[in-house]
Amino acid sequence: MSWLDKILPSRIRANKKDKGSVPEGLWHKCSNCETVIYRAEFEKNLNVCPKCNHHGRISARKRADIILDAEGKIEILNDIKPIDVLNFKDKEKYKDKLATTQKKTGENDAMVVYQGFINKIPVIACFFEYSFFGGSMGSVVGEKFSIAVKKCIEGEKALICFSASGGARMQESLFSLFQMAKTSAALNSLSNKRLPYISILTDPTMGGVSASLAMLGDINIAEPNALIGFAGPRVIEQTVGEKLPNGFQRSEFLQEHGSIDFILNRSEQKIKISEIISALMSNHDNEETSR
């Protein structure tokens, strides 16, 4: 028996293999190694499993608390809200689904933006909220992100973005596809001003978000074992008709293939990101580059 098994009540120990049997709230079961720990302890550990270092999902606002200094942290752009311009309806109306998701999550859409400081360095920071339509990018995410970029340019600040997204939001159709162009164009302007953009790819970063703002960082950082890619693994498996290699589209795979700069544990993110921004800004001049 491991130390953990010893401290667990027998009811939970017995049901260890049975997913979903852990009572919500008090206990957390790691989705990777199935270790069960007190939720409070899990949260204190920044939603990272102490046993296998699996980086669990975490809300946009909790991430902001981890990364940004408490002093001077102000949420911005929260007045931008989604509308259902296409009257989209599948099994239910997009409009209704938006309303229920807003109620459930307390968020207006899938991105939260702050102005603030990271170890006293001024930044604008964007955080995807995965529980809102799978962190999908529609018009609101695109608009928030591009205004965030503008604020960086106005204030000569660095930009940080934590991605967690399934891709473009289907219910907004071509409007959402075009947000890929919009966010990439905004980043082009930021780049021209020689202001740093640090992109942190977390589990999962896929599709239209991966193929636009998330891969365009001056520095691209991934959390351990995050699923990152353009096409989803199931689609690839169906297309190529073979089993995917072990660890395919995980952070470690991406680093091996030269697609990201490095992998960074959640607990070290604040210090490392602030070091990098401070290095990149150390000789900053605001003369525009040619492109």
């Binding site: 162009a181 991966s210 193929a211 998330a214 096409a231 690839i236 395919f248 991406l254």
Partner: peptide, 18 residues
């Protein structure tokens, strides 16, 4: 959507063009 395409960073190739 293929293993080779993802290995060579399909996302980055698209993003860079945008």
């Amino acid at each position: 959507p293929g293993i080779d395409a993802e290995s060579r960073n399909q996302s980055q190739a698209i993003a860079e063009n945008l």
